[in-house]
Each structure stands twice: as C-alpha cells, then as structure tokens.
C-alpha cells in the first residue's frame, strides 16, 4: 500500500468535484458553441477518473516504503518566513522587508559569518534597486510607512 498515492488521489478528486459543482452556476449559452461549463467539466471528469486510478494503484502497490528524513519542518518554516515577508512588504516597503527577510533566512540557515550576513542582506535589495528600479523602471512598492 502506498499511502501518498491514496491521499493525493482523494485530494485531486475533491478539488475536481468542487470545481465541477461550481460549473452549475454557469449560464447555458444560446449560441452554437458548447458553452462555458463544457471544458471545465471534461477536465474535472478526467481528473476524477485518473484520481480513482491513483487510489487503486495506491492500494495495490507492494513496493517497500523508503525511509524519508523528517526535514519537512525546515521547508515549512521557510514558507512561513516568505509569508511573513509578503505580509510586511505593503507596510515596510520592499527594500526594508527584503533586507530583514534575507537576514532572517540567513540566520535561520546557520550562516554566522558577519560579513556575509551584512553584505548579502544589504546587497540583495541594492541589486534590486539598481537593476529593477533604476535600469528597468519597475515601480517597486515603498510601503505605507514611507509614502
């Protein structure tokens, strides 16, 4: 039995089912074409079919489980850092948030070299400023604190 396949099978079937149910709000068109609901329904139907297959495979699979390391926490923590970073940008502006984010992530990944910590967390926003704001004229958000 391969649990991940069963889980993913169930998840995709649920997603497809949810989208399928939404298509009933779509209007039936009077024109000759198949209407807005047709394609999404085809996709959802096929996903349900293949998801079912995945579940069956999951139950039948006899291969042994590979031992995986429990490191997923670090990836989740990184996502947390990014989420915080994205929440901060509208308030602190892009440059300050970036410096903080880079610094925090470096510390988190056990970089202790002071030169590296400072130069990378200041250099990254500087690079963005020069390349994106100055050369490419992208309007980088300054944040509500500073405008």
């Amino acid at each position: 039995m391969k649990i991940p396949n069963i889980i993913s099978g169930v998840v995709v079937i649920m997603i497809a089912g949810f989208f399928y149910s939404l298509t009933f709000q779509f209007p039936e068109t009077a024109t000759q074409d198949v209407g807005p609901a047709f394609m999404p329904r085809v996709y959802c139907g096929l996903i349900v079919l293949l998801g079912g297959l995945l579940i069956i495979q999951g139950f039948r699979d006899q291969s042994k489980k590979e031992g995986t390391e429990r490191t997923i926490g670090y990836a989740l923590a990184t996502m947390g850092f990014v989420l915080l970073y994205l929440i901060l940008i509208p308030y602190l502006g892009f440059y300050l948030s970036t410096a903080l984010f880079v610094f925090a992530l470096l510390v988190f990944s056990k970089v202790r070299n002071k030169m590296a910590l400072i130069s990378v967390s200041l250099g990254t926003p500087l690079f963005i400023f020069v390349v994106f704001e100055k050369l490419l004229k992208v309007a980088i958000p300054l944040g509500s604190l500073f405008s």
């Binding site: 070299n113 030169m115 590296a116 130069s119 990378v120 200041l122 250099g123 500087l126 690079f127 400023f129 020069v130 100055k134």
Partner: peptide
C-alpha cells in the same frame, strides 16, 4: 568558495552603489 564569493559580491555591490549614485 565562500570567501571567493564574498569578495565578488562586495566588489559587485560597490559597482552597483557607484552606478546608482551616477544616475
């Protein structure tokens, strides 16, 4: 490699600072 990279980074950072000032 860390040292080498740091050297590169600092130099390029300086160049960018100069470039930014000159605009």
């Amino acid at each position: 490699s860390m040292k080498k990279f740091l050297g590169l980074f600092i130099v390029s950072t300086l160049i960018f600072v100069l470039a930014a000032c000159s605009t």
